[in-house]
Amino acid sequence: MKSFLFLVFILVTQILYSQEIQVIRREIQVQKVFSTSVSLQKFDLFSQVHFSWQTKRMIYSTGLGFGLNRSCFQHQLFPELGIGLSTNLISLKTERKTTVFFGPEARITHAFLRVIDLHQFTSLFLGYYFQIGSKWSFIHRAGIGAMRENFRSSTTKNIGASNFAYYGSIGIGYAWN
């Protein structure tokens, strides 16, 4: 994890300084970002689309995803809905209008899988959000947290179990306005 964060840091500094321009801190404009990503989670590899509303300090996002393994290879839709909230701990804008966002993120997701009964997977993650680019941007999220699986048992009791969960996603975004 430490080496991964170090790698992200190196990537950011290299991109910024390779352009030989001075990084200036200034107000980031409010923007709407549509993004698509793949996200590795405990139960599947999810293909997702997100819509983010980015302000000076906060990023609000909502997303819809599908578990690729189960949806594509098992003929069973595995949809997931999610909402996220991130704070811009670092928000930089270069003279070439390259924007960098980095900050902690909280994310809640809810996924559904019909086995025979409907299994519901609710997850709460704490992690980070990283975005670099201008009109087009590279977006990366990762986090750890807890998840709970619920279903009705063969004796119609409500059964649930919790466990550790994780996610890591990479994607591309497009900003307008």
Binding site: K42, V115, I116, D117, E149, S154, A161, N163
Partner: peptide, 23 residues
Amino acid sequence: MGNSMFHDNSKEAIEFALQMRGC
């Protein structure tokens, strides 16, 4: 299995499996 909620051969894993319809 990475996606199992419990460790194999544990009471929790066995009971969780047995309560699943279709098992």
